[in-house]
Structures are given as C-alpha cells and as structure tokens.
Nucleic acid binder design. Structure first.
Length: 433
RNA sequence: UCCCGAGUAGCUCAGGUGGUUAGAGCAGCUGACUGUUAAUCAGCGGGUCGGGGGUUCGAGUCCCUCCUCGGGAGCCA
C-alpha cells in the first residue's frame, strides 16, 4: 500500500497524487472489465474505478467479491472526473480488505419501514441521509455554544437525578439508596435560576426525560434541551434573545450546511424567508383569531395542536404567543402586572407545522406570590425550600427559556419526525439499540 | 389512556364476493457486458401469511381474542 492516507473530503485538492483512502463499501458495480466501488468514510463518498486488465488478477477477484459495508483501504491516483459524485475519483492500483462484511447487510439503498430501520439504527446511521442529519445536529449544537459564548453566558450543568420537583408531566423514577425515589430531570430550570444568581447569565445543555405516553412526530422520552437563564432580563429581553438565537441558527445552517440540506431535500427558500422581528401575539388576541377561524377554544384554555397549526399557518417565521392564563402554565411564571389573570410568558411556535420549539417566561421573583402559587398547585412545599431561598436572599428580576434541540433540528432540516434527528431515539416503545 | 391504520419471502408490497401448488420488485447467489451513478440482461434459491381459538368440505381471505408496530389526541420541548 503506497500513497499517503487521506480522507475523502480532502481529495479534490489532491488531484494527480497517489493516495490511500480507508472506508466502507457503499456499493459495488461491475461492468465487464471495469468496475466501480463507491466508498464512504464519514467525510464524503468516493467513486473508485477498477480496470481488470490493469490490475493483478487477485486484486480484481478481491474487488468483485466485496460486499456492502466491507471495510477496505484503496490506493490509487486521484483524478478530477465530472461523472463522479464529488467531482473526483480514484483510479485504483491496490486494494486491501480491512474488515469483511456479511452478504446479509440489512440496509439496502431503497425504501424501508420505520420499525425495521429503528431496529437497525446502529447500521442505519451509516446511510447518507442519516450522516447529513447528524452533521446538521452537530453544526447546530456548536452554533448554540458559539452564540452563548459570544454573549458571555456561562455554560452550567444541572443534575439529572433529582428529587420530585419540576413540571407536571410524567416522571421516570429510580430507586435511590435510602432517599427513596429519584427522578430523571425534566428540566434544569430551577437549578438554572440558582446559577443565574451566582453567574448572571447561564445556559444548560443536556438531556431531559419525560415519561409521557406520547406517540407523535414531535415527542421523545429522552430529548436534549438548552435552558438559558438570565439575571435582569425581563420577558421582553427574553423574547429578543430567543429571536436572535433562532435567527443565528438558521443563518448558520444556511452558511455552513448547504450540502447537508441539499441531501435532506430541504426547501431552503423557507429558511431564507425567516427574518426578524417575529410576530408577538397576545394570548387573548390569539383566542379571538382562532375563534374567528372556527376553533372551539375559549379564554383560559391552553392552545391545542390544531389551534397552534391554525395560528402558525399565516406566518413564514416563528411566532411568539404571549401571556397565557396562569392556570395553563407553570407555577414559577411571573404574574402579569397589566392583567393578573395571566403570566409573563411566551411559547415560540416554529413555522411549517413543527410546533412549539421554545417555552419561556419571566420568573416570579416575589417570595410570597411564589409561595402562594406553590400552595395553589398543591406542590410539596418542603421540596421547594431551596428554590424559595432564591427570593429570600437578594431576589432579582430574571427570565429564561427552554429550547428543544430535536424539534429545532427537525424544523431547520425539514425532518418530519424527531426520531431521526437524535442518534439513538428513546420513545415510548423503544429502548434499543 | 383514547381514536384511526397496519402485520404475507431478508426488505418493500400485491393477493374481488373463501376454492388446486401464495406472487412481484429489490436484496443474495451464478453468468454476460470497458464508464456505471439504486446500471442493464438471463438464470437459481428463498414462506409457521403476527400468535391462539372458531365457522366451513375448504381460511392469507370471514368471526373472536391476544400481541407488535405506525399515525393522531391529551401532555409537552
């Protein structure tokens, strides 16, 4: 084996040179005395050309016996070739089998059912579309870190094993020594508020868990959430930050992941149309609008999935629905001084039917009002002692939000179901692989 | 938990109102072909029709039941 080792993405710049590339066989075609091997190495795909009468017989035989996903090293000359995917191909002079692959590799270049693909998720991830999705995910994760780093936010990690606090949806419990049951965190927000009092502006980035028996394209039982919490931000500042973040993410995807978006057949004109400012619709106005469109919603109800779809249909950008009735929202949201029936909050709904991607609010900073709400909701007061302490010792105006990573990726990538945007999805009926 | 829908070859599916030996495409294997892009052509192998029970001379097909999965609702990000 001669020639320096290269990765496929670097090959167009190495035209005319002898290189060795290692990767997995995506496809083999023989055409009598010439054959083609499509090689995948995670950075791209490479067409390798084998010509029978220019190769030792044993090399040709090795080539024709290759199976899908065999791991190989191929050596040859890089040449620019418009007929090849990526614009460059390899004229092969030597081939080495690094790892054989059985002829029964289950994933074929054709349609498969969802259940079958998820059963083989560990192999499905090797396919082009899945690689593109994971690279988009990576890009957006990095963009989130870049966004907050540039604004001097501190990334702070919150516990996953918690006592029973947090929101109202289902909890996963697990036995915890002599302390009774521990629960997998549904949110790091309350801890984020404590950290905001220490550091000013923070964000969390990690997995959260919801034991909801939801079987829809928008739900996972384990999903990743980013939860910023900002001292001295009111709800207006909060929404402004959310808008800047979403615009930054869309811009980053368009700037650096066009090839992946093309593989995903994303209509990028829909992303290019996403510009600020995003509409901010008061909950009361939303109810009126929805009633005009035939919804049976009445003031006080939370918006149903159908209501959200009706509302979003009029806009090309995400929208904020602001200031819900307090009964529809969590106890920690700050009472709206202009209308005490409501709280200072907003849900951000993505366009194109991707649903709610952000939920945020200004937090109740008045100790007595917060305690009243905890009692009103019938929450275990003792468990919230430390949280109430944040209002006893230097309470402060602060706000924050939670953005669902998978829903955001699904929207930007145009992926219909969130199960495809996380490497190993956890859902109601799926714990493996 | 509720409402729809689906389980037939390794995969994706077709199989009126029940009727002989359950089919196709893809994948695999054998062969032909010097520029293919999920190549093409010829041939070969491949089935507990999701499980159980019932009706019938006869069930992939009709009935009951259970299981699994998908979509949606509620809840949420």
């Amino acid at each position: 084996m001669t020639g320096r080792i290269e990765r496929i993405a670097a090959l167009p710049a190495a035209a005319g040179q002898q290189v060795t590339v290692r990767g997995w066989v995506q496809h083999v075609r023989t055409q009598g005395k010439v054959g083609f091997l499509v090689l995948r190495d995670g950075t791209g795909v490479l067409q390798c050309v084998f010509v029978r009468n220019q190769l030792p017989p044993e090399t040709w035989d090795l080539f024709t016996a290759l199976t899908q996903e065999a791991c190989v090293a191929v050596t040859g000359e890089v040449r620019l070739e418009p007929r090849a995917p990526g614009g460059a191909e390899l004229g092969v002079t030597a081939l080495a089998l690094l790892g054989a692959s059985g002829a029964d590799y289950p994933i074929q270049p054709k349609e498969h059912g969802v259940d079958f693909l998820l059963d083989h998720r560990h192999l499905w991830l090797r396919s082009q579309r899945q690689v593109a999705i994971m690279r988009l995910r990576h890009e957006l994760e990095q963009a989130i870190h870049d966004f907050f780093y540039a604004r001097d936010f501190v990334r702070a990690d919150t516990p996953i094993l918690t006592a029973a606090i947090g929101e109202r949806a289902g909890l996963f419990g697990t036995e915890y020594f002599d302390e009774g049951t521990a629960f997998l965190a549904q949110t790091g927000q309350l801890y984020g508020e404590a950290l905001a009092a220490a550091l000013g502006r923070i964000y969390t980035f990690g997995p959260t868990f919801r034991a909801e028996k939801s079987k829809t394209r928008r739900h996972l039982t384990e999903f990743w959430m980013i939860e910023p919490e900002m001292a001295f931000y009111d709800q207006g500042d909060n929404m402004q930050l959310q808008e800047e973040l979403l615009l930054f993410l869309v811009e980053r995807a368009l700037e650096r992941r066009r090839p992946e978006l093309a593989i995903l057949e994303r209509d990028v004109s829909k992303l290019e149309a996403v510009k600020g400012p995003f509409p901010r619709i008061d909950y009361g106005d939303a109810v009126t609008t929805l009633q005009g469109k035939g919804s049976s919603i009445t003031w006080g109800d939370d918006l149903g999935a159908e209501d959200e779809a009706l509302l979003v249909a009029d806009y090309a950008t995400p929208i904020f629905v602001c200031n819900y009735p307090k009964e529809a929202k969590a106890f920690y949201m700050k009472e709206n001084p202009a209308d005490p029936r409501t709280v200072l909050c907003a849900d951000c709904l993505a366009p194109e039917g991707y649903g709610e991607i952000i939920g945020g609010s200004q937090r109740e900073d008045d100790h007595d009002k917060l305690l009243h709400r905890i009692r009103e909701e019938g929450l275990p007061e003792a468990a919230y002692g430390w949280y109430l302490d944040l209002r006893k010792y230097g309470t402060f105006v602060h706000s924050g939000f939670g953005i669902g990573l998978e829903r955001t990726i699904a929207w930007i990538g145009g992926i219909p179901h969130v199960r495809e945007v996380i490497p190993f999805p956890r859902m109601m009926h799926r714990l493996t692989p």
